[in-house]
Design a protein around this nucleic acid. Structure first.
Lengths: 126, 126
DNA sequence: CCCACCTTTCTAGAAGTATCGAAATAGCGG
DNA sequence: CCGCTATTTCGATACTTCTAGAAAGGTGGG
C-alpha cells in the first residue's frame, strides 16, 4: 500500500515526458531499440544544442525513463523499458484502478491479440 | 500518420498529471466513478484553497482528463474516462510502439482477464 | 430585490523550468 | 603531455507555472 509517497516518482516521470522535445527523444529511443543512440546524434537529430539536450536527457534519466552508458568517448542513451513499464503499470493499476473503460482492451489496438471476452461491457459514450 | 502534431495534446495531458495535487485529484475522481465530486469537496478534501483548486481542475479539463457539469449551484467534476484512455493508448501504441517489454502483459496485474497469448510477433522495429 | 452560497477569474508575487553559450571534464591518440 | 572530440556542468536570462487573497459571476431562497 503506497498512497501518497509512491506517486512522487510518477509525477517526475510524467513531468519528464510532458515536454515536446523530451517526448520526441523518448519515442526516438524506443524506436532505436536496445542499442540506443549517442548523445550527440540525439541532439543533432532533434536540432537542439548539445547543452540543452544534455539537460533534457538528464531529466529523463532522473525520471527513470532512459539509461546512459559510457562507451569510451561516446555516451549511449537508451530507453529504460522496465522504467516505462513501471509508469504504465502505475497509470493503469494504481491511478486508474484498472477501470475497464480506460484500461480494458487496450491490447486490441496493439499487435497483440485482444481479450475479446470482457471489457466490452460498458460503452456508454461515443 | 501524425508525427509531430499529435503529441502536443499528449504533452498537455502528461503535464496535467505531472503535479502532485492534480494527480491525487484525478485518482480521487477515478475512484469517485461516474458521479464524480463537487468542486468544493475536492478542494476541501485535498486541503487546498478553492481558487487554487479551480486552476488545477481547469488544467485537467483543458487536457481532456476531467469533465465538469453544473448542477444548479454546484459544479460536478468527473474523470474523463475516454480522455484518459486516449492517453494510455498513445503511450502504449504511438509512444512505445507496443514494444512487449513495456506494454505486453500489462493486463496480468489487473483485475481484468489477461490475454494469455499475446505478443505473437516480436516486432523487429527500427 | 437582495442576500447567501459556490465557484471562477483577476492579480501579482514567488517559485520553478527552459535555453544556450562558455567553461570544465573525460577519454583517446599521438 | 598535448591536443582533439564528445559531453556535461555552470551561469545568466527569459519564460512559464504555482499559489492564494480579493473581486466578480452565476444561482437559488426568502
Amino acid at each position: 500500500m503506497y498512497e501518497a509517497s509512491t506517486q512522487i516518482w510518477a509525477v517526475d516521470a510524467l513531468g519528464a515526458l510532458a515536454h515536446e522535445t523530451r517526448l520526441r527523444v523518448f519515442r526516438m529511443l524506443v524506436m532505436a531499440g536496445h542499442e540506443g543512440m549517442i548523445a550527440g546524434a540525439i541532439a543533432e537529430r532533434q536540432g537542439v544544442p548539445p547543452s540543452t539536450m544534455s539537460h533534457h536527457l538528464a531529466t529523463l534519466e532522473r525520471a527513470g525513463l532512459v539509461q546512459s552508458e559510457r562507451q569510451s568517448r561516446l555516451i549511449h542513451y537508451r530507453a529504460d523499458f522496465p522504467g516505462m513499464r513501471r509508469l504504465l503499470t502505475f497509470l493503469m493499476q494504481d491511478c486508474c484502478q484498472g477501470v475497464p473503460e480506460m484500461c480494458g482492451d487496450l491490447f486490441a489496438n496493439l499487435s497483440c491479440e485482444a481479450p475479446q471476452s470482457q471489457a466490452a461491457n460498458t460503452r456508454p459514450d461515443a
